[in-house]
Design a protein around this nucleic acid. Structure first.
Lengths: 135, 135
DNA sequence: CCGAATCCTATGAGATACTG
DNA sequence: CAGTATCTCATAGGATTCGG
């Protein structure tokens, strides 16, 4: 018999995960989504379902190994759905699940931030490096 | 002599960085900020300046090597400022720069997402794994 | 207390070759 | 086309030791 209401349970669940704690599963999840390829794949899939080769072309320089690996992990975590059309040759499409779309906002912002603030970061680096070599 | 107006230049600069391209510096920047420790350090510093040991205690399980490394990179990229008080023993404080605070939003959301959606992800994993072992 | 330096191991990640 | 399987090399990251 439950001693908590459903609302209390939900509140509890919310507080139950703290990425600051090493053993907390949310720390591992954070580690998995804090990944260059994850960010790029998710933002690429924002436009709609895409085939393996389309994604591959979209993300210049990704090896098929990393792409496969990233897509598998995302599928297992429930962020991406995989649809196989058993034709010859096979056709495989990937698309964001509702859960996957729920992370789209933060991830897009991260990518946008990196692209928008490159000049400032580059300048900061030059300043830092100049200071270092002056020792 | 410039063939573009300042506004056009600004627009150009904005478009000039594309993380989808392998050689683009913004791809590397994205790679650096898409990091578990970066996310945790930045969110920890959101509360205000903190000493090395304070951050260390805040992020359970971080080795001092990773913390130092992360802080150095963030300092070089201009996201974090380092203040040394030459007492004995030395006191070192870290704080977010304005540039560092500008990324706080996206990063906080990422951490919050991981903590909030752990149950759904865990369930997705179980479903996935059950499907796999049924083969 | 804050960190640099070193050593060591596990994982990351590309290149290549092969299959349904 | 969409993978899987290996191989190889580089990097991540922990443990430990030492220094200002």
């Amino acid at each position: 018999m439950p001693t908590l209401t459903a609302a209390q349970r939900r509140q509890q669940d919310k507080m139950a995960f703290d990425a600051y704690l090493a053993e907390c599963p949310s720390r591992k999840l954070l580690d998995r989504i804090s990944d260059k390829w994850v960010v790029l794949v998710i933002t690429a899939l924002a436009d709609g379902p895409q085939r393996f080769s389309e994604i591959s072309r979209h993300l210049a320089g990704v090896s098929q190994k990393m792409l496969t690996q990233t897509l598998r992990t995302l599928e297992r975590d429930g962020l991406v759905a995989r649809h196989v059309t058993p034709s010859v040759p096979v056709r495989v499409d990937y698309e964001l699940t509702p859960l996957g779309r729920s992370i789209l906002g933060p991830i897009r912002q991260l990518k946008a931030w990196a692209e928008a603030h490159m000049p400032e970061v580059a300048e900061a680096q030059e300043t830092y490096d100049r200071r270092q070599e002056a020792r």
